[in-house]
């Protein structure tokens, strides 16, 4: 199981849950973190770390080749790594817009291209794309980010149709705001406001979202493809 952005936040929890569930999980990120290193120690070989900058689009084919050589057939891919820049679009540097699209849209599409054909050659596989409720609902200051997250949903639906006949399922998970490094910038007031507006009066936890991804990767989800599972404590209900 490959998890991009597996060094922190949602990706890290997911890698740990995968290892607990008996899978071998490979975390990809630019640099390892102390929590990831201790997870690797605890997991006795079930978690591996492969350093890679996913913004390096040209390097992706060689990355996939290396992953397959080192770890064998790839059963699942979770496109989780992403960046978020918050701010008025009218003032956002174009370089930041470009980086958002490169890392959140272009990179997962190209990575999936190389992984999915190997999955098809091996007879099947699972792909989960981490989108966001911001892909379908609005949030001031996240227009460019929202565009990239919506792109993952469109990607999920069409690819599911394309590779379904070859035994590969493709789904998306759309989390609401969770407390991670990515949402550090949210002030307490904003967080409380989001909680107040959610049916369950709280934020979803990273663990809630990780469990949903795990479900989509597992045997119980064989008949689920091309769909988006929202995990937002009822924020968009």
């Amino acid at each position: 199981m490959i998890v991009t952005g597996g060094s922190r936040g949602l990706g890290l929890v997911l890698v740990q849950r995968l290892a607990d569930a008996g899978y071998r999980a490979v975390a990809i990120a630019r640099k390892e973190t102390n929590p990831l290193l201790s997870a690797i120690d605890d997991a006795a070989g079930a978690i591996e770390f492969v350093p890679f900058d996913l913004g390096d689009i040209a390097g992706i084919p060689a990355l996939v080749q290396r992953l397959r050589k080192s770890f064998g057939p790839i059963h699942g891919l979770v496109n989780n790594a992403a960046v978020q820049f918050h701010g008025a679009l009218a003032l956002m540097p174009s370089a930041q817009i470009e980086q958002l699209v490169r890392l959140n849209t272009l990179s997962p599409i190209v990575l999936t291209k190389y992984v999915v054909r190997a999955m098809m050659a091996d007879g099947g596989g699972r792909i989960v794309n981490v989108a966001s409720i911001i892909g379908t609902t609005g949030y001031s200051g996240l227009a460019a980010y929202g565009a990239t997250k919506a792109s993952m949903i469109g990607f999920t639906r069409s690819l599911a149709r394309e590779v379904g006949p070859m035994g590969v399922t493709v789904n998306a998970v759309a989390p609401g705001f969770m407390a991670t490094d990515m949402t550090d910038a949210l002030g307490d007031d904003q967080r409380r406001q989001i909680e107040r507006r959610s049916a369950l009066r709280r934020l979803p936890t990273i663990e809630d979202v990780a469990e949903t991804v795990l479900f989509l990767l597992g045997d119980a989800a064989t008949s689920i493809t091309g769909t988006v599972v929202t995990v937002d404590a009822g924020n968009t209900a």
């Binding site: 084919p61 080749q65 397959r68 190389y114 054909r117 190997a118 098809m120 050659a121 394309e162 590779v163 006949p165 070859m166």
Partner: peptide, 21 residues
């Protein structure tokens, strides 16, 4: 085209090259 994609993936494994990438 899906079958052709599988052929390209298999050949990459066997020959170590993918002329398309």
């Amino acid at each position: 085209s899906l079958c052709l994609a599988i052929i390209v993936a298999r050949l990459e494994d066997r020959l170590g090259v993918d002329p398309f990438s």
